[in-house]
């Protein structure tokens, strides 16, 4: 059994301190009584009530949640299709262009994606707002979804599908009863990733949004430019805690499902 050496333990401690200390400090100071962000004035939760009383924040949060839910769902559907095309569809004219378009948005600077989408919407005479942000978010999130799902599809055991079709299942039935349940963990993580990407995005939303569709990151950004406030600390804490619990819960759940499925598969093989 290997144990931590002194060097390894200290490298990990320092590394994780660097990664987590800023967030921990932010959370601690969100409970600060004092308006001065760096002077501790006693424990208080008043900034949290201030956040919930702030109509601007609440409206922006509602816009962000709606944009996130719609765009994550659409992005997961389109991403699943794109992943199937990449892994299963074989050759077709223009496939290189297609895979290029799937991978390029992952490395594209956000300012360029935002600018180009805005110019598209302007030349099509679209009114910018809620739906243009969704179109923009679906476009980059579907590429992330496609990458996540295709990496699962590559290791997929095709004999399971063949068995189902040999037993008389149609293509559609096979897809929804065999393929989807098996790749479901990757679909769930693709949805979660798309949702958090949409929740986090500032740059692309700033370009593609219009009046009345201010998202939470845009709202936070305009406040942050004026300086650090305990209200923003409280709002950030709420967001960080919500997203982290969601991600940890989802990863534990999918892991348990995976283990259970593998056990069932093994039992089926042993039984047969």
């Amino acid at each position: 059994m290997r144990r931590f050496s002194f060097f390894n333990a200290s490298a990990l401690t320092l590394g994780f301190a660097f990664l987590y200390l800023p967030i921990v400090l932010l959370i601690i100071f969100s409970f600060n009584e004092s308006r001065l962000v760096t002077v501790w004035g006693g424990f208080s939760t008043k900034w949290y009530s201030a956040v919930f009383a702030n109509k601007g924040f609440m409206d922006a949060a509602w816009v962000t949640v709606r944009v996130g839910l719609v765009s994550a769902t659409l992005a997961t559907i389109l991403g699943t299709m794109a992943a199937l095309v990449l892994v299963r569809a074989g050759r077709f004219p223009g496939k290189t262009l297609f895979s290029g378009m799937v991978y390029a948005p992952l490395v594209m600077p956000e300012v360029i994606t935002g600018l180009s989408l805005l110019l598209l919407f302007v030349s099509l005479d679209f009114d910018r707002g809620f739906w243009t942000v969704i179109l923009a978010h679906v476009t980059f999130s579907m590429c992330y979804s496609a990458v996540v799902i295709s990496s699962r599809l590559v290791t997929f055991d095709m004999s399971l599908e063949e068995a189902a079709m040999d037993l008389g299942a149609s293509r559609m039935a096979t897809f929804f009863q065999i393929t989807v349940p098996i790749i479901l963990p990757s679909i769930v993580s693709a949805w979660l990733l798309s949702f958090t990407l949409s929740l986090d995005d500032l740059v692309i939303a700033s370009f593609t949004s219009g009046p009345g569709a201010t998202t939470l990151p845009m709202k936070i950004y305009s406040q942050v430019r004026l300086g650090v406030t305990p209200e923003i600390n409280a709002l950030s804490t709420i967001l960080v805690v919500l997203v982290s619990t969601g991600v940890i819960a989802a990863s534990l759940l999918t892991k348990r499902r995976e283990v259970q499925r593998r056990r069932e598969e093994r039992a089926a093989v042993a039984g047969g």
Partner: peptide, 27 residues
């Protein structure tokens, strides 16, 4: 998991957290 988790939490918030640390009267 600990390495991946910060990737999920908001980029803007993680950058914002440094303002309070680095500024002149900061932590």
């Amino acid at each position: 998991m600990l390495i991946i988790l910060p990737f999920w939490t908001s980029f803007l918030i993680r950058v914002y957290a440094w303002i309070g640390i680095l500024k002149k009267e900061g932590l």
